[in-house]
Design a protein around this nucleic acid. Structure first.
Length: 854
RNA sequence: GGGCACGUAGAUCAGCGGAAGAUCGCUGCUUUCGCAAAGCAGAGGUCGGGGGUUCAAAUCCCCCCGUGUCCA
């Protein structure tokens, strides 16, 4: 980056000079007298016992001081965003305050909620999980305080100079730090295809702020200026508090009394982990993460299980609920939403604690058994086994060792060895672009006015063709609903041509016709939306909102929509929930959702500013994921459910008709899927089901009400006849056995051994069974031959000591070119097609007799 | 999203190429005034599903489905 990028008038006004760090080689600006930048490790911590700021601050005081400072300087304070970044599909968690505004605000597509703005955003970082509690300064969740400005060519708020000035003023004038203590180190920030200069602000070894100025887009080697430049800053709240105390670790001043309380029962490291994890969990669970074995849910599970492990080591430990509760109460003073659904949160945790107990118990048993097996074969468990057990059973090594009689040593780098196993895994990220297969529309074409938002009942309209290519047509206005938000496309006609698909392409709605469009730009066309299809889709969409609201009500506020699909045949919704639904829950859901349908509540759809909507309804608006735009379209089922949604909806709940739940399944850990139908389809399905029942009853010859008993009777009959057939076959084989034993051509006795040999075309299992009957007594050799599809099979069973069936078969194989083998007790061989089976039988008989003689 | 482990009798699991097993539970009988217990006898299995390899597959290979777990 060009040095002029950092040469700010502010530095000159204040008398800063530029030096180069003798350690890291970076240039920096400072008022002090340093040969190195003040960031660790170039300079070691110097603020322990010598606080950077004039007086100690609590977390709350510091947050308030920061936000107040920027408010007083023209910034608008905005509320935190959820810690789970549902509006993005590239990350699970909000990892910096700027994430709140990516991608739409930073790309310029949507204006920021305020400009400039200030925020304290709780963010999650799992990278340093192992360092938490150990380093004295790492946290899983911390608050990133920030001030952001978004500059458009026509509206410059502020950029590098003013930003740096504000930062310095905060540090020096507001917090009373020594102005000469700081270095502003020149760095380059790059991410998401954008880059720009950045300044890393440090004092006494501690980095207190990063000021990032996004201004270029990378285009290979060249840099292109961005149309919108962004001031992205980050100030760690916990660090500020720490710097104001100058204590040895950051945990005492940040966690205060809570930490002291836990210290009575736990080592400092464990106490810090417990309280850190409790804080992160309170935010995660409040923001709707349900612990599970994948995606964001896994991180919640990880934190909870790590906590449980620590608690499990201390007999007098408080339970996990009281720790979460205590932490939650503390957080709720500043973030009231965290305290709102405590009972629900507790249920989620209870389910998870129970699962953990079960998993560990199962794993303990497995480990014990496995060790027994290893020992009985003369070995002993190895460190490698410990890694196996952790990876596949989830047993931490210290617990595994407790189970073992001969424990191997736990490697010091245990978790690195686990990580090494996962090194070569390649995650696949196959994105399906929605716009795939759609043509490029010239930017000069005016955007489509979408009318279905305003009136979902109008299905016939006139419009002008603005653009057309192949089968695609863009109109100036349309009532056709394009695929989106989980609702499938409308169909219908443009003129006389069928519309087979409708899709968004940027700001245009493209109608795809059954064949190349005959229309010309400027043509006036008549559009007719298939009203039956539209009605069904509307019903299914409104039904989905009703279902979502009902699920939150019945199961609890931890329920979030994780996906939905609305087609004509049926609809489905996937929601986060910690276990499969019970019959009772399902019945309650069915009753409640249909009750709301019958109550005929108004369903209002309207546009509202994003900020206002978020203020009124909170982030639960975004059930279907993030929605772009300054204005949100709100779909509000009065007194029941509010979501940001672009779909077509009924205006009253009774229009949904009825909701018929077709099935429930747990599609993955932590996610439950419900399938259902509404409207006309619900009735159809009900009729189909009734017809199936009637037909089944008719075929069984019982009334519908007696169907279950009828089926039981039928099953009993099948069972009975199977048994009869089996007994019959046994009996037949028994008779055959009697016959063979009394037939001198088949049976001969040689000393202590009776050899039975016969050719009877039986199948394999029958031969085995017959042999078993014949050789009930010891000292029998049974040789059976049969031919199936031209190939001879020879079966030998032996209970005669010293005579191995396998050897007998081996001896007979050459006689009919057979392949096979077996054990001393039983053996089989199959000959080539047409090979002499009788010869083989004789050879086997000879071999058996010969063995006895020898 | 990926790696690994697991899926066998009602339950918990063994077997890991040659004739499907153990323990508990269940049924009947013996013993007892009755119960518990013990003894004897017995019922109960498409070895998750589907392909393939093999003379032979619960066992080896592939694909699904389900469960668990670790990692992003």
């Amino acid at each position: 980056m060009d040095p002029s990028e950092y040469d700010l008038p502010f530095f000159h006004r204040q008398g800063f000079h530029r030096s180069t760090c003798v350690v890291c080689g970076h240039a920096f600006w400072t008022l002090g007298d340093f040969d190195r930048c003040q960031e660790a490790p170039c300079r070691e911590y110097g603020f322990i016992g010598a606080p950077i700021f004039v007086r100690p601050y609590s977390l709350r005081e510091m947050r308030e001081t920061f936000l107040g400072f920027f408010e007083a300087r023209g910034h608008t304070r905005i509320r935190r965003y959820p810690t789970v970044a549902r509006w993005r599909n590239d990350v699970f968690f909000t990892q910096a305050s700027i994430y709140d505004f990516q991608p739409w605000v930073t790309s310029g597509a949507v204006p920021p909620p305020a400009n400039p703005l200030t925020i304290s955003q709780p963010v999650l970082r799992f990278i340093d999980l192992e360092e938490v509690g150990r380093s004295g300064r790492h946290f899983t969740l911390f608050e990133m305080m920030a001030h952001h400005a978004f500059n458009r060519p026509d509206h410059e708020v502020y950029f590098k100079d003013r930003c740096t000035e504000l930062c310095h003023e905060l540090l020096v004038e507001k917090l009373g730090a020594n102005p000469k203590a700081f270095t502003y180190k020149e760095e380059v920030w790059e991410g998401g295809g954008n880059l720009g200069p950045s300044l890393s602000v440090s004092a006494l070894g501690l980095e207190v702020a990063t000021l990032v100025f996004m201004e270029y887009t990378r285009d290979g080697e060249n840099l292109k200026p961005m149309p919108l430049t962004v001031v992205d800053t980050g100030y760690g709240l916990e660090r500020f508090v720490w710097a104001s105390h100058g204590t040895k670790s950051a945990y005492e001043p940040v966690f205060g009394e809570e930490y002291d309380e836990l210290r009575r029962s736990f080592a400092p490291h464990d106490a810090a982990v417990l309280i850190d994890h409790a804080r992160a969990l309170n935010f995660l669970l409040t923001d709707g993460v349900v612990p599970s074995n994948s995606k964001e849910g896994y991180f919640a599970r990880l934190l909870l299980r790590r906590s449980l492990r620590i608690l499990g080591r201390v007999p007098e430990a408080p339970d996990i609920y009281s720790i979460l509760e205590r932490s939650g109460r503390e957080i709720a003073r500043d973030f009231p939403e965290v305290g709102m659904h405590r009972d629900d949160l507790r249920r989620v945790v209870e389910a998870e604690v129970e699962r953990y107990g079960e998993a560990i118990e199962r794993a303990r048993q497995t480990i014990r058994r496995t060790e027994d097996r290893i020992r009985s074969s003369g070995g002993h468990a190895t460190s490698e086994d410990l890694i196996d057990w952790y990876d596949s059973l989830g047993v931490p090594p210290d617990l595994a060792v407790e189970e073992l009689r001969e424990p191997p040593p736990i490697p010091n780098d245990f978790y690195s060895l686990v990580a090494a196993r996962h090194e070569n895994e390649r995650p696949t990220n196959d994105y399906v672009e929605v716009t795939q297969g759609l043509p490029e529309v010239p930017a000069s074409v005016p955007k489509t006015e979408v009318l279905y938002y305003l009136d979902p009942y109008t299905v016939s309209f006139d419009a002008h063709v603005l653009w057309t290519e192949g089968p695609f047509v863009a109109l100036d206005r349309t009532y056709f609903y394009p695929t989106g938000g989980g609702q499938v496309t409308d169909r219908g006609h443009l003129g006389d041509l069928e519309v087979v698909e409708v899709a968004w392409r940027g700001p245009w709605v493209l109608h795809r016709l059954e064949r190349p469009s005959p229309f010309r730009v400027g043509d006036r066309v008549r559009g007719r939306v298939d009203p039956v299809r539209r009605t069904q889709l509307m019903q299914h969409h409104t039904a989905t909102h009703l279902m979502n609201g009902t699920l939150r009500e019945v199961l609890g506020p931890h329920v979030w929509q994780a996906g939905a699909y609305k087609a004509t045949e049926s609809a489905r919704i996937d929601v986060t929930h910690f276990r499969a639904l019970s019959k009772e829950e399902l019945r309650a859901i069915d009753r409640r959702v249909n009750q709301i349908v019958r109550e005929d509540r108004p369903v209002k759809s309207y546009f509202e500013s994003r900020a206002e909507a978020e203020r009124r309804f909170g982030f639960t608006l975004y059930q279907g994921g993030a929605v772009p735009g300054r204005e949100l379209r709100i779909v509000e089922i009065e007194g029941f459910d509010v979501e940001a949604c672009g779909g077509t909806h009924c205006t009253h709940t009774s229009e949904v008709g009825a909701i018929e739940i077709l099935g429930v399944e747990r599609i993955q850990d932590g996610v439950v899927r419900l399938n259902y139908a509404s409207g006309e389809r619900a009735l159809e399905i009900r009729e189909e089901h009734e017809e199936i029942l009637r037909e089944a009853a008719r075929r069984l010859g019982v009334p519908v009400s007696r169907l279950p008993e009828g089926i039981d009777r039928l099953l009993a009959e099948i069972e009975e006849s199977r048994k009869v057939a089996r007994d019959r076959r046994k009996e037949d084989l028994g008779e055959t056995a009697e016959r063979l034993l009394s037939d001198p051509r088949a049976t001969e006795t040689v000393g202590p051994v009776t050899v039975v040999a016969a050719r009877l075309d039986l199948d394999r299992t029958e031969m085995m069974e017959l042999s078993r009957i014949l050789s009930r007594e010891a000292g029998r050799v049974v040789i059976l031959a049969s031919e199936r599809e031209g190939r001879g099979t020879l079966f030998v069973g032996s209970t005669a000591p010293g005579i191995s069936a396998a050897n007998v078969v081996e001896a007979a194989k050459p006689a009919f070119d057979g392949k096979g083998g077996g054990s001393p007790a039983a053996a089989t061989a199959v000959g080539e097609p047409g090979a002499p089976l009788t010869t083989a039988l004789d050879a086997a008989r000879l071999a058996a007799r010969g063995t006895v003689a020898a």
